[in-house]
Design a protein around this nucleic acid. Sequence first.
DNA 1: CGAAACATTGACCCGAATCAAGCATTGTGG
DNA 2: CCACAATGCTTGATTCGGGTCAATGTTTCG
Lengths: 243, 243
Amino acid sequence: MSGADHDAGRQHLLRKLQSLARLSADDAEAILALPMDVQTWPANHPLVREGDTLSACQLILDGFACHHKSLPDGSRQVVSFHIPGDFLDLQGLQLGTMDYGVSTLVPTVVGRVVHTALHELTWRHPRVAAALWRDTLADAAVLREWMLCLGRRTAREHLAHLLCEVAWRFSIILPPVHSMPLTHDDLADSIGLTRVEVSRELEGLRRDGLIGLQPSGVAVLDLDGLARVCDFTPAYLHQDRAT
Amino acid sequence: MSGADHDAGRQHLLRKLQSLARLSADDAEAILALPMDVQTWPANHPLVREGDTLSACQLILDGFACHHKSLPDGSRQVVSFHIPGDFLDLQGLQLGTMDYGVSTLVPTVVGRVVHTALHELTWRHPRVAAALWRDTLADAAVLREWMLCLGRRTAREHLAHLLCEVAWRFSIILPPVHSMPLTHDDLADSIGLTRVEVSRELEGLRRDGLIGLQPSGVAVLDLDGLARVCDFTPAYLHQDRAT
DNA sequence: CGAAACATTGACCCGAATCAAGCATTGTGG
DNA sequence: CCACAATGCTTGATTCGGGTCAATGTTTCG
């Protein structure tokens, strides 16, 4: 938990917001100066429960987390993944109760920023507020693509699409061909299928040489090949950068 | 197309934004004064195509429309419904290209507001900008609930849930027990199933006395009964009002 | 070493898709 | 005013993707 670690997490946030709006030096300084209470959590730890009302937002400084919703019968749907630089519960700043839960997927470091500090930031720095709004819009675009996957793609296409997306987003912050720390249960809850079917489809993709199955997780070996399986087009991520 | 009609549509927008943020009289006046180019379209008319880049936002003044995405093979997923007072393409104001299409479902009147006017509005009226951000967050909450339906509910539960949501949202602007102007194809594209299965499940719900099937569309007869079928809880809509 | 968590595989089942035929409304032109 | 096309709805027979159940294998870690 060195100071440098926290700075790296804040820098991810700043870089993302700068890519979404033209920020002044003053805006940037205010973002980096946000008062933040740093906490470390293990993998699979709940950070927010459905129905909570919050008084602070949590920024991922290091690690990996997801949003999820559940049915009374216990079945669970993961609705999004989040990486360093993402706020996990910006919704709690603006709307009353949380309609989704948040959990870590790997050991994760978060920075808690009290709502008053964020309200002050957005009030004094309208361009930062605009950037956060755009970030919300970009997140919604990802939700829509996931809905298309859930409703209209086959199991294999959906799985391939998810792996493409995660590999693509991870490549911003991690070296390529890094294996992804997702269990088969995580993948199943993300694509709306069962663990058993995930196992079978992963085996199919492995046999085709598109992915590698290691104990540490799934590794994407042939991103272009995978993208061809599922017609992956990263435009919906609304992030401009060299592919 | 009388002036009164346009005012009704604007009033829906104003009322929604006032429920999301405490607006000043000046803020309200600016919203009602937005310069707007009024257009009328038939049912099933495309208003935005996937990939478009826009220079104006379209506000529904009267009617009913949806957002949808498609796969290369032509299959389509409806991702949200929109009613008078909703902007159909706020995303186009903040992000480059549209990742979804927009179509009318019934004859619809929209007001086109050029981006420059909206940028000026949000810049001069930060509370209006905050309200629009909250509106985006509330829309995203609906997308997440739809994902839960797509991934984890059965055909019957999902259909019942959709009917509950639409009936609930329509009740704000229409008399109750109004039949909903959705074809079986529209419903099928919304819940990620086929027209045939929609027909069978609707017949099941009708046999149980929960809905009525008329030529003009589906009418919800027993909202509480329907809600019990699918565990419908309107909290995710983030609209406080007497149920 | 043993327990717990995670992954794989096979046999069988079921919900929804597909294919196909026929019916009911609506609207249009002769 | 009727004919008939177009669109939308219903229903049955059959198929198939993915679920369920169950047994077994593999890591990881206390």
